[in-house]
Write a protein that binds this DNA or RNA. Structure first.
Lengths: 129, 129
DNA sequence: GTGGGACCTGAACCTGAGTTGAGGTCAAGA
DNA sequence: TCTTGACCTCAACTCAGGTTCAGGTCCCAC
């Protein structure tokens, strides 16, 4: 037994990802097509690492397409930081806009929680279309 | 000419909403079924107000179903603030969780913008699955 | 050798908030 | 009268990120 290999279910439970998501990522090109043994996918532990990268990038707000760009570039030997910096710089204003909108929602909700109106149409909270 | 009535297109442009969205809201029960003249929907200016309520509630993070609950309750004569307070209190923790996650993304992106790694699999930014 | 659990494929389905398209009708101005 | 633009309905489509299902295979333990 050369390298220990993992079934898709094992990879899934180590990475905290569903089996169907792994197959989906493979279809999307985020994971390389693995070796097979008797029809079953066999993975190396590196796949668990890669899934961690994918999950982290997703949590950072990247779409799967963007994660694909990131992974593809580094697979081609380019230093990871080039794509990462580019993507991070592009994503940052999006996230900051999201935060700003969410803060505004929060303020509105805090006021709404104290609302005493009878009718929404005349409530100052709903002014300006 | 009793009350000035508006076509769907006029309502749309006053409210800053698309015509298809108005028909969609009607199907979803967020807007009352309007009178017709020769097959065309005729609206009163109150519809523009109601669309403003809907848009504001959406911006506050409410789903259309939740907006429906809000509007339906006040249509039945209940004071608006009851439903509004309830919904706002329920929504607030969701928005606060969103803000927290977004702040974490932002911090991560700020660090990622400075990343110098060659390989993502060993980058500290991607540690812990 | 048989039961059952993990795996395989491909296609269909899900959510949310609408948009788009086809095919038809209505109103108003030249 | 004709044209044009706004309107009508209903069904199907969009996007993301998967999940679920049906029908079939594979491995392992008993």
């Amino acid at each position: 037994m050369p390298n220990a290999t993992l079934t898709i279910g094992e990879v899934a439970s180590h990475a905290g990802v569903s089996v169907s998501a792994i197959r989906f990522y493979e279809r999307r090109g985020l994971l390389p097509v693995p070796e097979r043994e008797g029809g079953w996918r066999r993975y190396t532990p590196a796949t668990v690492e890669r899934l961690a990268v994918i999950e982290t990038a997703k949590r950072a707000g990247f779409s799967l397409d963007e994660v694909g760009v990131l992974l593809a570039a580094t697979d081609e030997g380019a230093p990871a930081h080039e794509q990462l910096r580019t993507l991070a710089s592009r994503k940052l204003p999006e996230i900051e806009a999201l935060i700003e909108r969410a803060e505004a929602m929060r303020q509105w909700l805090l006021v709404a929680r104290q609302c005493d109106c009878d009718e929404l149409d005349v409530c100052a909270l709903f002014d300006r279309g």
